[in-house]
């Protein structure tokens, strides 16, 4: 795939921060969620600032190698920490996490990366493109331009394997959900629901307004890294034409497609980057 510089138009860290309007709790709340997990709650709203904090703490936990932590699950405003109580007891873990938070400043944080999602807009793969354009009194071209002009923060993954909850869509293309949801939306479909945009990793029912489709697989259980995206990073939709779509689809099927992940202005296609 041709590599061109597409860094223009994406937000730098400072701009990203200024977008958030959420309030971090002065003190992180530690909530008990049974005897094998706890939740660190950082705020009570959906904001980039809170999400950035979650990402930092998540990376700090991964780096700390605290024995007994089995999984972490970042969500909009909290981080669930799963642990093995036979290895580490609740009180001990609580203490270690609190210490970790105090030392957060000293943890070196890699900057978030941006996954490029090549997308074919409109036509048979974007049956609701006209709805979206009409609803917002825009042309199809304008919808595509607006949709591809920003990086979207992946707040969390959930709902289905690899489904990204994205933030930051331009209100100018916001469109309510379909009145009658579709019983099947194909994997790779890119859609809009109110002021949210998203992409479906697997075939599922849904009421989103579909504006396009990506030929890449966000989820492939048989791939070494089954899920492409990771919370705390960004995605960017890149407009492609039918020819490119078919070529990428073929490469994906053959396993030769090189996923494009931008990091700090540069580019990398290394799989390691996915684990940032």
């Amino acid at each position: 795939m041709e590599l061109t510089n597409r860094t223009a138009g994406c937000l730098n860290a400072k701009q990203r921060k200024s977008q958030g309007g959420g309030i971090l709790y002065k003190q992180t709340k530690y909530l008990v969620t049974g005897d094998r997990a706890l939740v660190m709650e950082f705020g009570n709203s959906i904001s980039e600032e809170i999400n950035s904090r979650i990402r930092s703490v998540g990376i700090a936990i991964e780096k700390s190698g605290i024995n007994g932590i089995t999984e972490i699950v970042p969500t909009y405003r909290s981080l669930m920490v799963h642990y093995d109580p036979m290895v580490i007891e609740y009180d001990v873990l609580l203490e270690k996490l609190a210490t970790l938070e105090e030392q957060l400043e000293s943890v070196e944080l890699p900057s978030p990366c941006t996954y490029e999602i090549p997308t074919l807009y409109g036509g048979e793969f974007g049956p609701d493109m006209e709805n979206v354009a009409k609803h917002n009194e825009l042309t199809k071209e304008q919808v595509i331009e607006i949709h591809t002009s920003r990086d979207y923060l992946i707040y969390m993954l959930g709902f289905t394997p690899g489904f990204p909850y994205l933030g930051g869509m331009d209100e100018r293309i916001a469109t309510p959900r379909l009145k009658i949801p579709r019983t099947r939306i194909d994997a790779g479909s890119v859609g809009i629901a109110s002021a949210q945009t998203g992409v479906y990793p697997i075939d599922s029912p849904g009421g989103w307004q579909l504006i396009g489709r990506t030929p890449i697989k966000l989820y492939d259980p048989y791939r070494e890294n089954p899920i492409l995206l990771k919370a705390g990073n960004y995605i960017r939709f890149i407009r492609i034409d039918r020819e490119e779509y078919d070529r990428i689809k073929e490469e994906v099927a053959k396993g030769t497609y090189r996923y494009i992940i931008r990091n700090g202005g540069g580019r990398t296609t290394e799989w390691e980057m996915l684990r940032l």
């Binding site: 997990a37 699950v73 969500t75 909009y76 405003r77 909290s78 669930m80 959930g158």
Partner: peptide, 10 residues
Amino acid sequence: IISDGIAMGA
């Protein structure tokens, strides 16, 4: 609530 994690037995 704003979505968060669900543990086994919640």
